[in-house]
């Protein structure tokens, strides 16, 4: 299977302070890749670089063989990369319905959009119950489902998820993990999953990268990393 994303030697700065100092990673078609690391390690910065929210200082980002660093975020969404941002970020005063339709903003075929809506509502029946409710009034877990559904409405080929388990009731973390597995399998979407819940991320991914202060410290098969001493000590200590 081919590479869908190639992130090579990327450096990213906030003013004069680096957040990424030469990070490289790849995602293959159909794969779920986890990105773990402590708070402030630079995980979100990697996703911001891919989506064009933040310009990179050096390095190259290729998606489906085409260079995308320097493109506008809207062009990157259109090309097929959707992101679920950290902290959910629903449109609080829009209904669930309008939030989902915003996800399809770059698409124009009404029939296909309706098909995606049906798929999302089938996957997250809770959203159907809350269809006409303002998104800001829902629980954290429901909002997380909404933003994942909203990202799927773009019909992405690569889905970036930034800490989907953060601030979600422990009972729902399982549900969200299962949804990610199902989406990856059924919708043929490649997934790059950022998590501080490393155990969950390693369980549902095939490969993983561990990040420390802006550089990749470890990488490999998730199953191996789950057993790795250093990972146990650094990333799995005391969790769950």
């Amino acid at each position: 299977m081919g590479e869908i994303l190639n992130f090579a030697n990327v450096e990213l700065y906030y003013d004069h302070v680096y957040a990424l100092k030469g990070v490289s990673l790849t995602v293959s078609e159909g794969e779920t890749v986890a990105l773990i690391g402590a708070n402030g390690a630079g995980k979100s910065s990697i996703l911001r670089a891919i989506t064009g929210l933040r310009k990179i200082r050096s390095g190259e980002i290729h998606y489906e063989g085409k260079r995308i660093d320097g493109l506008d975020p809207s062009a990157i969404v259109k090309a097929g990369i959707a992101m679920v941002p950290e902290g959910r970020r629903v449109f609080p005063y829009m209904t669930v319905r309008d939030n989902l339709l915003m996800g399809a903003f770059t698409r124009s075929d009404k029939a296909e959009i309706a098909g995606s809506l049906e798929m999302v509502l089938g996957r997250f029946p809770r959203l159907k119950e809350r269809f006409s409710q303002a998104a800001g009034t829902m629980s954290g877990g429901e909002q997380q489902m909404l933003v994942i559904g909203r990202a799927l409405m773009a019909k992405p080929k690569l889905l970036l998820l930034d800490e989907p388990s953060l601030g979600v009731a422990p009972k729902l973390v399982q549900d969200i993990a299962r949804s990610i597995v199902a989406i990856n399998r059924d919708e043929r979407v490649s997934v790059l999953l950022v998590e501080q819940n490393s155990r969950m991320a390693l369980r549902i991914s095939q490969r993983a990268y561990a990040l420390t202060t802006g550089a990749i410290a470890l990488s490999g098969n998730s199953a191996d990393l789950l057993k790795d001493d250093r990972v146990q000590r650094l990333y799995l200590g005391g969790e769950l």
Binding site: S74, F91, M94
Partner: peptide, 23 residues
């Protein structure tokens, strides 16, 4: 309208709106 929805989205969450492809 499409521009109307885009503007409401921008006003409510600028970053999220960008991630939806709003220019």
């Amino acid at each position: 309208s499409r521009p109307g929805r885009a503007m409401r989205a921008l006003a409510q969450d600028r970053v999220a709106a960008q991630l939806m492809g709003v220019e």
